[in-house]
Amino acid sequence: MLYIHFSCPPLPHLIVGGVSLFRKGDLHERRVLDQTFDLIFVFSGALYLEEDGRKYTIERNQYLILPPGNLHKGYKACTSDTTFSWVHFYTTGHYFYSENPITQVDSKMNKTKYYKKDVFYISLPQYGRIDDSLHEIMKNYMDSISQVKIDKYHNEKLFYSSTKSQIEYQQLFLKILTILRDLREHEKEKELAEVILDYFSSHYQNPFDLNQLAAQYSFHPAHIIRSVKKKYGLSPLQLLLTIRVQKAMKLLEEERHSVGQIASLVGFTDSSYFCKQFKKITSLTPLQYRNQPGVNPSTTEL
């Protein structure tokens, strides 16, 4: 993954937005934009673009930012009718690339910072996909700044007059950049949730302590709860209990331990609570699970 980092101020600004309608068999043009960034967002179909020797397939809800100075071209014709919006934008400030995003740490306000803004960075993944829930929001923003329509069906390029003030156009453009910037935050939440899952899988016998978990991974407890819930649909405690029950199911198949022993082995201090959680998750009591037909330690995998 390549990230583009814009040093601000000044902020990147919109030049023009448009929409293109490509037919099956159409190919994106070959060109180099000397000073202009080109953001492409696909609403339907797929574009096949090559930039600086790297090939990208941009499908529905995916986007690609083409930096200035690099050759980009279509390396394959559209295999179906394709609709996409595009934005040309520019910055008079400094920008650079890296394989990792910049984590912004704001310093505390003090009296020396009244009259000058500290430099901050907007880090955008060059290529990515937005969530389906943001599709209509992104489309509305892109449509609202569109002043050009390229229609391959009718072989025409149409230009439209401004319908908003320049401030409104720039505000909409920054909202688009905010959606792309926030993709990294969603990735971090996903990564955190997966880290918590791995930790529970290895330490399921340990007592549950959310504050200790928060201290261990340097995140607020509420952030951990939100991340795990978003990824797995469970609270951290529910996730841990599910893992414990899955471990207990394997032990029940072996028929070497009593229910009370198994409860202790998987981290429960109360066998009654273990039985209650087991039934809540599996709809069976531990003994019903052990005695049901087909439970065989040599063939059952969880």
Rank of each mutant, 00 (worst) to 15 (best):
F41C: 07
F41G: 07
V42I: 12
V42W: 04
V42A: 10
V42L: 09
V42Y: 04
V42C: 13
S44R: 05
A46V: 01
A46I: 01
A46F: 00
L47Y: 00
L47S: 10
L49H: 08
E50C: 00
E51R: 03
G53N: 02
R54T: 14
Y56W: 00
Y56P: 02
T57C: 09
T57L: 09
T57M: 11
E59G: 14
E59P: 04
R60P: 08
R60T: 15
R60E: 15
N61L: 08
Y63M: 06
Y63R: 07
Y63S: 10
L64F: 05
L64A: 06
L64Y: 02
I65A: 10
I65M: 10
I65Y: 10
I65S: 09
L66I: 09
L66F: 00
L66S: 03
L66D: 02
P67C: 08
P68G: 10
P68R: 08
G69M: 06
N70W: 06
N70E: 14
N70P: 00
L71M: 14
L71H: 08
L71K: 13
L71V: 13
H72I: 04
K73R: 15
G74D: 05
K76T: 07
K76E: 15
A77D: 00
A77N: 01
C78R: 06
C78T: 14
C78H: 05
T79Q: 14
D81G: 06
D81C: 05
D81P: 02
T82V: 09
T83H: 07
T83D: 11
T83I: 11
F84V: 03
F84P: 04
S85D: 13
W86F: 15
V87M: 12
V87E: 13
H88M: 11
H88N: 13
F89W: 10
F89M: 08
F89D: 14
